[in-house]
Amino acid sequence: MLTNFAALEVGQHLYWQIGNIRLHGQVFLTSWILLGALLVFISLGTKKMENDPKGLQNLLEFLWDYIRDLARTQIGEKVYRDWMPFIGTLFLFVFVSNWGGALIPWRLIKLPSGELGAPTADINTTIALALLVSLSYFYAGLSNKGWRYFEYYVHPTPIMLPFKILEDFTKPLSLSFRLFGNILADELVVGVLVFLVPLILPIPVMFLGLFTSAIQALIFATLAAYYIGEAVEEHH
C-alpha cells in the first residue's frame, strides 16, 4: 500500500493525447477550476464598483493596492503601470494555485492516473512562468532602452559580462525550481504525514504549507518585478 501511495504521489500524470502532443491533464484540470473560481470571485467583486467600496470590492481594492505597491517598489515609478497586470497575474496565479492545491481536498476525486493537486507542483507550470518572466524582462529592457539595454551586461565593468550572461540562465532556473520544489515538497510532506499519522499531527504542517505557499507567491511576483525593474533601470 505504501508503494502504491508513493507511486501515486510522485511523478504520475493523467495524460491527454491530442494528435502528436501529450499534456498533463491534471495540471490543466486544477488550473481551470482554480482560475475559474478566481475569475468568478473577481467578476463578483467588480460587478458594481462604487466610490465608497463595500464588501468584495474592498478586498479587491486592497489586493490591487498590494500588487501596485509590489510593482512600484520593484520596477520604479516610471514603467510600473505597464507591468502591473503581469506581476499581479503571476502573483494571483501562483497564490491561487498554491492555496488551492493545499486547501481543497483533491484526493477525494479519483483519476485513472496521477492525482489532482497544485498546478505549481508540476515542473511544466513553473518553467512556463519562469520563461515568461525571462521574456518579459528582455522585452521590458529592449522596449524601454533599445540596444542600450545591453549596457547592463557590462555595468559597472566589462568583467561582469560572463556573470550577467550566466544570470539570464540562472534566473528562470532558480525561479522555476524554487516554486516547484517548495510546493511539491509541501504536498509530499503533508501526504506522507497524513499517510503515517492521519490525525492532528499533519495540521501544523498544513498551516506551515499555507504559509510557505503564500510566501512563494510573494517571492515569485517580487523577483519577477525585480528582474523587470533591473532591466528598465537607467544607469548613470
Binding site: 510522485v10 511523478g11 504520475q12 500524470h13 502532443i21 501529450r22 499534456l23 498533463h24 495540471v27 490543466f28 488550473s31 482560475l35 497575474t89 503571476l90 496565479f93 496521477g114 498546478p119 508540476d122 515542473i123 511544466n124 507550470t125 518553467i127 512556463a128 512562468l129 520563461l131 515568461l132 511539491l184
Partner: peptide, 20 residues
C-alpha cells in the same frame, strides 16, 4: 511520467497565463 517530465504542458500553460 516522472517529476521532470516536460512536454507540451509547458507552452500551453504559458499561453494560458498570458491569456489570463
Amino acid at each position: 511520467g516522472g517529476l521532470f517530465d516536460i512536454n507540451a504542458t509547458l507552452p500551453l500553460m504559458a499561453i494560458q497565463v498570458v491569456a489570463l
